[in-house]
Computed example of a mutant assay.
Amino acid sequence: MTGEPRIPCGHAAQPASAHANDAIAHSANKASLRATLKAARRALDPLDKARRDALIGARVLAWWRAHSTREADQVLGVYWPLRGEPDLQPLYLELARAGVPLALPLVVAPDSALAFVAWVPGEAMVSDRMGVAVPAEQRMVDRPGLLLVPCLGFTAERYRLGYGGGYYDRTLEDAPRPVTVGVAYQADQVAFAEGQHDVALDVVLTEGSSLPPGTDR
């Protein structure tokens, strides 16, 4: 999902040099895609971005309403928007008012899985070690069973392209995996060969569509 694979990709019969070449090509392809997608986000008109964000928020809310009856008190993992990511804060406020427990991710160490802290919109915030806003009072919670995952890019097979840190990769390595809902703009759909550690998201929601079509779970 995010980042380059920590084990080189390739077929087992290939020699070590072929493994290295595959890994380099894989890395270069993702780096190029990241640069292109970041530039496209910077070019978004603010009013158009706000319109898209509202449409995405409505789709996420509809998804939540269709699935929240399974475990009404289940914590929903959300994200604080960075680098032009879809801003869903109005949605978070609506969910919190409806009594949905929310949690934000927290980077606790390099090359480790994310931790999660309980969050109520409007409470005091500070910056974590990565410069990401987190609650000033850090009330740690277990990994949420439902998780919104911001995507810099995504494929038709629902593999995620992130910023390269690998934090979501490591968060989703251990079973049981949470239900993962990718959040992205429709124009962020790209193509790349997934790595050995990439895990497909359960669904990807954009302002105009979802993947897989008609099978949101």
Rank of each mutant, 00 (worst) to 15 (best):
Y185A: 07
V179I: 12
Y79W: 09
D198W: 02
P86T: 06
R51N: 14
P105M: 05
L88F: 03
L147P: 02
E194D: 09
D174Y: 10
V120A: 13
A156Y: 03
E4I: 11
A200S: 10
S209Y: 06
V60D: 00
L147R: 00
L44C: 10
G3V: 01
D202I: 09
F192V: 13
S27M: 13
A187M: 11
E194W: 00
D188R: 05
G145S: 10
Y185W: 12
L33A: 05
G3T: 01
Y159C: 11
D87L: 08
L95Q: 01
L205M: 08
Y163K: 13
A118C: 09
A40L: 14
N29W: 00
D174S: 15
D111H: 09
V183C: 06
R97N: 12
E123M: 14
Q196A: 11
T215K: 15
K38P: 02
R217S: 12
E94T: 15
L147M: 13
I7L: 14
G153F: 03
D202T: 10
T155N: 06
L88D: 01
A118E: 07
L114V: 05
A72F: 06
E173T: 13
G77V: 01
A43M: 10
M1P: 00
I56R: 04
P90R: 06
V181R: 02
R6M: 11
A96Y: 01
L205D: 01
I56Y: 02
R70H: 13
A13W: 10
V117R: 05
A25R: 14
L91C: 06
L82N: 04
A103V: 03
Q89L: 14
L201V: 05
V190Q: 07
L88Y: 01
A25K: 12
Y92I: 07
H26T: 11
Y92S: 04
G153H: 00
A20D: 14
G153L: 04
P213M: 07
G99W: 02
T2K: 04
V134T: 00
Q74N: 10
V126I: 15
V203T: 13
A191N: 11
G166A: 04
P176E: 08
I56C: 05
A31N: 15
D198E: 07
V132Q: 03
L47Q: 13
D188S: 14
P90A: 09
A13Q: 13
G153I: 02
D45F: 02
A200F: 03
E173I: 11
L91H: 01
L152A: 02
A191K: 12
D198G: 04
F154K: 11
A31E: 14
G84D: 05
A66K: 11
E85H: 04
P110S: 07
P105L: 03
Q14E: 15
R70V: 14
E123L: 10
G145M: 07
Y163V: 12
T155P: 04
A13V: 14
L93N: 06
W119T: 03
D142K: 12
S68M: 12
G122P: 04
R217Q: 12
G3I: 01
Y159W: 08
V141C: 10
R52K: 12
L91D: 00
L211Y: 01
R52G: 03
L95H: 00
L114Q: 03
A62I: 08
G77E: 02
R139W: 05
T171H: 01
Y185E: 08
L91E: 01
E4K: 10
Q14M: 13
A50M: 11
